[in-house]
Design a protein around this nucleic acid. Structure first.
Lengths: 173, 173
DNA sequence: AGTAATAAGGTGACATGTCACTCAAGGTGA
DNA sequence: TCACCTTGAGTGACATGTCACCTTATTACT
């Protein structure tokens, strides 16, 4: 919720004002609130109904969409926009639970292929309907089709903007 | 990113379809991506420039806005929409670093008052300008004023919807 | 071939978040 | 007053995420 609130105002430095306007603060706090509560709710539902975390689910879905239900770890991390190290830790935990398995990659001795196990696929198939219902209930039931489309458009703008900034950072740094 | 993707399609069950439409999937993934990347980026900036986490910052801002820069723990947790236990753990860490302190509450023997220390206020004041700049840079620079207003409106709809659902759950359960 | 740079992946330490549980203080009604 | 319930807070175990660093395999350059 709270963030970026003015401690005091500094008029006169107009080109890049030091503080957010009241309107921007409202927008910012709404955004923070919604973007933390939505995954929290979905995670609870998923955990209770299927024993999977939202992160487990995302990994399973992404693997399931991949050719042969398998994927290099770095590629998987890229698809989910996770750090490689985070992915490595998470796969270790999921492997321990039998949801995925790792194997050598024939093309590249450095790489590992992660693969969906039968148990992983079963867990995904069991979890999916309830999760989709929850996504609909939490997000799409709150919005008209037009609002949803607007949300998609605006979040895409934000992502593109972040990509552009990362490009710039990478080039400069 | 990935979530709620169809494993197969099930046409004919029109009233509450089992899967998200392609359009909804795109919206959903955009939303997930943006709502995880924005705080990640801001957290990095804050950590590097001020040694504070985004969570530290939110606590400091909220306390700073409170009367007497102090607040009951449950109230603080409510304002930030955190679980009490999370707040308790986090305050323990922040107290260890001298950013806040706890004290007895005169009105209620069960309650504790958290208070901003001088060091906490100093840290906040040092961190705020850079953080505000980052929020602007990451979010508001990506959006026109109209888009930002739309984002605020839509995220408010989502929050209200979640509130309504929680009410219903509380009444029923 | 020989070597430096890069890329893939893993690891350990630590910060953060959640859940179930405990404890103590306050309130309520017989 | 006493039993009982509720509320505020803390705790321990564990899951998750980040950072810095390591090892190994590939690539690029000479």
């Amino acid at each position: 919720m709270a963030a970026a609130t003015p401690l005091e105002d500094s008029p006169g430095t107009s080109p890049e004002p030091a503080w957010l306007t009241d309107g921007q603060q409202r927008i910012w706090r709404n955004w923070l609130s919604a973007s933390s509560r939505v995954p929290a709710r979905l995670g609870q539902q998923l955990q209770q109904d299927s024993g999977l975390s939202l992160q487990d689910y995302e990994v399973l879905v992404t693997l399931n969409e991949a050719t042969n239900s398998s994927c290099r770890i770095t590629e998987l991390a890229g698809l989910l926009e996770w750090e490689r190290s985070r992915m490595s830790h998470h796969l270790t935990r999921m492997e321990k639970r039998g949801l995925v398995c790792r194997g050598a990659c024939p093309d590249d001795g450095r790489a590992q292929l992660v693969e969906l196990t039968d148990a992983g696929r079963t867990a995904l198939e069991a979890a999916a309907p309830g999760h989709v219902r929850a996504v609909r209930s939490v997000l799409f039931d709150a919005l008209s089709d037009d609002d949803a489309a607007e949300l998609g458009r605006i979040t895409a703008l934000i992502s593109d903007h972040l990509n552009a900034q990362e490009c710039g950072l990478a080039r400069r740094g």
